[in-house]
């Protein structure tokens, strides 16, 4: 496991938890089926993120990432906030264990989605409702395929027995 001290601090004492009742933008990414889900609420004043709150269903890393992204984004201009990358969040947290790196994708994605939602609302564009989003349900008996030679392989194979390539750790995102 080995979470850094910063991760543990943000996990145990998460900053900016909650909702903003009259938020200017809302970003929702992930779903509980995949293991984590995050909602980001932003309040925008003069093109700056004046306030930001989150709610997250997820592991220790997902909660720490959510907390950190709100800290990084608070007070930034929208343009600056759009430039925050997933790797910035992981870096600010003092690193994440390799199998938790996907959790850091959640943070920046949710923030960017909230900003996009704000911009769409402002320009009067139709805003996609969360219900429209497709649920990523793994199907029963879904097979695994080698990403290199595309032959059907067994789950959790250490390497592909057809082409010999090492298999990456697959996940459901």
């Amino acid at each position: 496991m080995a979470y850094s001290e910063i991760v543990l601090d943000h996990f145990k004492n998460p900053r900016n938890v909650g909702e903003i009742t009259e938020a200017d933008g809302l970003g929702e990414v992930g779903n509980p089926v995949c293991g984590d889900m995050m909602s980001v609420y932003i309040k925008v004043e003069n093109d700056r993120i004046a306030d930001i709150k989150f709610k997250t269903f997820g592991c220790g890393a997902a909660i720490a990432v959510s907390s950190m992204i709100t800290e990084l984004a608070k007070g930034k201009t929208l343009e600056e906030a759009m430039k925050i990358k997933n790797s910035d969040v992981a870096k600010a947290l003092g690193g994440l264990p390799p199998n938790k790196l996907h959790c850091s994708n959640l943070g920046a994605d949710a923030l960017h989605s909230a900003i996009k939602n704000y911009l769409d609302r402002k320009s009067g564009k139709a805003v996609a409702k969360p219900e429209d989003k497709e649920l990523h349900l793994p199907e029963k008996g879904e097979a695994c395929y080698c990403p290199y030679c595309e032959k059907k392989v067994e789950e959790e194979s250490p390497f592909c027995i057809f082409c010999g390539q090492e298999m990456p750790h697959e996940h459901d995102h």
Partner: peptide, 11 residues
């Protein structure tokens, strides 16, 4: 037994 805690990230 959460997926996130397992190596494979599967439920």
């Amino acid at each position: 037994r959460s997926a996130c805690a397992s190596g494979s990230l599967r439920a």
